[in-house]
Computed example of a mutant assay.
Amino acid sequence: MLRTEDLPTGFRAAGDDLDGDWSFHAGTSYTCEEDGQSWPGEKAFRGAVFRRGTESTVIERVERHSEEGAKTTMGNVRREVDGCKPLNPDSSKGMEVFASGLAGDESLLVGRIGEKATSRWLFVRQGELVAQVWLKGVDPAEDQRIAERTAARLCAGTDAC
C-alpha cells in the first residue's frame, strides 16, 4: 500500500474507509452509458485513504486476482474508457486515457475528458495485483512518481517482481 512518503508533501493518512463515489466504476456510471461488460472478482483487497486539507484526496484500493484476472481488469479499464458513450453529451465528453506505461507490468492513467487537473484514476498492475488510485486535487506532474511508488509497493506483495 502507498504511504504518506510516497505522496506529495502535506498528505496525511486518513484510514482505510473506501466508501463513497470515488471509484472508477462510480466515475464511469456518472459519465458513460452502461457497457454491460463483466469484471473479474478479486480474491482479496485492501484500501488506504490520504488527505491534504479538504481539497486533495488520494484513495488506493489494491486487489489480488489470478494473473489472468488482473490482466482482464486492465483490459476492461481500457475498453470502458475507449468505449465510453457520454451519458449526457451536454455536460460530459466522456473518458480518455491520459497516459499508459508509467510503471509496473501495466499501467493506465484515465479520467474524464478535459478534467486531468481535477481528478483521475491510476491503475497499476504488478503480477496478480492491481492498484486503483484515485487522485483528486493532485498536481498531474506527480502522476509518474506516484505510479512508480505504487508499482514498488505492489512488488512487496507479489512474486512477479
Rank of each mutant, 00 (worst) to 15 (best):
G15Q: 13
G101Q: 01
E142T: 04
T57I: 10
R112T: 14
V81K: 09
E55Y: 12
T54P: 14
P140F: 08
T158E: 02
R46I: 08
R149L: 05
P89M: 10
T28M: 14
T4K: 14
L129P: 03
G114P: 11
D143E: 08
G10I: 13
F50I: 07
A141W: 07
G94V: 08
Q144I: 07
V62C: 02
T73N: 09
D143P: 01
V110E: 02
E5V: 11
M95G: 02
G127N: 05
G69F: 02
G94K: 08
A14K: 09
G47K: 11
G27L: 05
E63D: 08
G47C: 13
A152N: 07
I59K: 12
R64N: 06
T9A: 10
V124K: 00
C161F: 02
P40M: 12
A152Y: 03
T158C: 02
E60G: 05
G20F: 15
G157E: 06
S56D: 07
P8F: 15
V97G: 05
G75C: 01
M1L: 13
R125M: 03
R46T: 08
W134H: 09
E42F: 11
E34N: 08
S56M: 06
I113P: 00
Q37G: 09
R51P: 15
G114D: 10
D19Q: 15
